[in-house]
Amino acid sequence: MIPSDSSIQFDENGNLKHFLTINGLPRETLINILDSAESFITFGKREIKKVPLLRGKTLVNLFFEPSTRTLTTFEIAGKRLSADVINLSASRMSTSKGETILDTVRTLEAMHTDLFVVRDTASGAAHLIASHLPDHVRVINAGDGRHAHPTQAMLDMFTIRQSKQEFSNLTVAIIGDVLHSRVARSQIHALNILGVKAVRVIGPKTLIPTEIESMGVTTTSDMVDGLDDVDVVIMLRIQRERMDGQLIPSEQEYFNRYGLTEDKLKFAKEDAIVMHPGPINRGLEIASNVADGSRSVILNQVTNGIAVRMAIMAKIMGARESTMNEKQS
């Protein structure tokens, strides 16, 4: 199931209740999340890095796929908002004993979970879960198959705004394994909604899905053309674990043609920033000296991930009581 409908994300008053996909969100919602992330960013520097917004609320991180930075930053974000955070990974769950994902979620919901953060190999998993939970339970998509990874896209937008302030004049290049990348799809939606000047997708034809141009981007297989005058360079991980056929010739050849090196970066603007959602394959899609270089904001992306995820949780968890108690008051 590839969900195209994002209306399930909103309550009857038009407020955001789940965060499942960027597609279909109004620009002001994205700006609002970026703005409130701005104020959460200062919390990392405080003596006590906690605020009481989600005190007494239970957050379950439900990860059916391995993750380091997403899981950890969601855990930290939840804890800094004072929620009780429980992490469940595939190997520890009863789904490995044959339980369906919906039964697992219903079981956890019976323990009065308030917010689920879900990662799954199947596109649409978070949508499916959100549509089967009671009204007051919230769901955040932390990556579903090839479909979407909306919180990653938001932290990327935050990182871009940190360096470039305005979106309207930017040309952004997304390079590499777009075929398997839920990150790229969410980024393209976000960049379009925020109104950047142009989005270019660069990579070998085998890794660029044919339908991608319908999302309003241009595609090319030529790094020199593609990087010309670019403000933001987003590298994607070659997802070897998802490749069943021969999609790239050899790792060395891929690196020679599409790996981001200092030499190739010269074709972009002088002040272009380099991003990567991680984990990075050094020497495959990006050279080590570029990943660690002065134009790389890869570690800023990780740091920003905490504040942006706090902002998204605060956004969907706020004013929840008004829908829960409407009938009583």
Partner: peptide
Amino acid sequence: SFYRDDFSRVGLHPEVKS
């Protein structure tokens, strides 16, 4: 804004300042 006791009723103020 982050310390208000009515967050679960009215949500986060849209223009939180640092």
